[in-house]
Design a protein around this nucleic acid. Structure first.
Lengths: 212, 212
DNA sequence: CGCACCTCTAAGCGCTTGCTCAGCTTCGTT
DNA sequence: AACGAAGCTGAGCAAGCGCTTAGAGGTGCG
């Protein structure tokens, strides 16, 4: 009942599909199944049999496409962090005042965490389940996300546009606020991802003391 | 100034000890061990052998004091949520303007999540590992926490002290911001719980547009 | 003392886990 | 038609899981 139905697309049109970069199709089905299962029950509570079952395959089929269960998590985490960083950088490198770019960053970052909260939950909260090397790789990506947001705030302060006594602390708080959306957001709830994005963009502008 | 100071005197002075209400001593040792293990590796990745081992006991000893591993999590979660709610209510029912009470609530709530981030991590992020009945019990406590914060904001708006277009949304954001401290806070980091509490109190006052 | 009671351990039961492997099918290529 | 590679399955292994049980040891009370 999901993305698999929309498979009759043009060969080139897979780029905007959530997991379009994962091939072959069986590997993608397994990965999508893993995202759902990890988000619902957590990495450690999810069995390889459950993942394979959701993808309509036998348990053994998983190991043709992925060496271990942890490699599946790493692939998910890597792609998700790349996407998150891409979203933040697009806003940071965009045009407009620091205030406009910060609002844009928060709006799109939050929208992604709400819209794709299943994926985001896995990406943001299952970091500790990764092996040591994979974890350090992902932590490096997170530092870059931090730097992107801090950059916008720095520029806003330098331009006299923001009033921020503690840039590093405020950066952590802004990112933390956005990330945690994936924990509480409920698709059946009364707020749309766009509404939460707009609300949060406003709250963050207040946090940095942006002048209207 | 904060709720912990209001602790009453008991022979032995165990009330201000973190898990002082858990008796007998062996049961408390097991519970403390479980908190550490759950916080480090997550509920599902923690074995009963690991918990018993940290408490210096054999695996079977655990089942003399707790019926199941899930009951251990429930006890931790229940006590933690009671404490969190107590902190918020103490601030909400305190004296002073809405701004002072909101700042007090955030400051002490954040300080608890930073100081006792091991416990808080379990309390806040292992909710889904609880059984259905235990989960609904805890969810009810969370709604009361939400109501306590919303109450302060409502009063601030009514008094013309705050400028908040979306009270419900802002309440969620404030709580989310505070709770997520337990995820990223690091005792070896360069910020003390007090510093984070002060920073966050300031940020939240900005979010609600409090006038100085 | 004798006996009930509580706490705790050694051993282990039944089951599930991540993962493997021999073999079957389905291809594209020759 | 013949063939090797690739995708997948059924069966299953070693290890580890939550939890149970029989019984040992200490303590308090008649």
């Amino acid at each position: 009942m999901n993305a698999a139905d929309a498979a009759e697309e043009t060969p080139g049109g897979e780029d905007d599909m959530p997991w379009g970069e994962v091939t072959p199709e069986a590997a993608r089905r397994l990965l999508v199944a893993a995202v759902e299962a990890f988000a619902e029950r957590g990495y450690h509570a999810t069995t390889t049999r459950d993942i394979a079952g959701r993808a309509g395959m036998s348990p053994a089929a998983l190991y043709i496409h992925y060496k271990t269960k942890e490699e599946l998590l790493h692939r998910i985490s890597r792609i998700g962090h790349d996407k998150a960083l891409e979203i933040l950088r697009a806003a940071a490198d965009g045009e407009g005042t620091a205030g406009e770019r910060l609002a844009d960053a928060v709006r799109s970052f939050v929208r992604w965490h709400a819209e794709r909260h299943t994926t985001a939950r896995v990406v943001q909260y299952e970091l500790d389940a990764l092996g040591p090397e994979h974890r350090t790789e992902i932590v490096a990506l997170r530092r870059e996300s931090d730097a992107a947001v801090r950059g916008i705030i720095d520029e806003g302060v330098a331009a006299g546009e923001f009033d921020v006594p503690d840039v590093a602390g405020t950066t952590v708080a802004v990112l933390s606020l956005c990330i945690d959306v994936s924990r509480w957001f409920n698709a059946q709830g009364r707020r749309t991802p766009d509404e939460v994005g707009a609300l949060y963009a406003d709250l963050v502008l207040r946090m940095v003391g942006a002048q209207k």
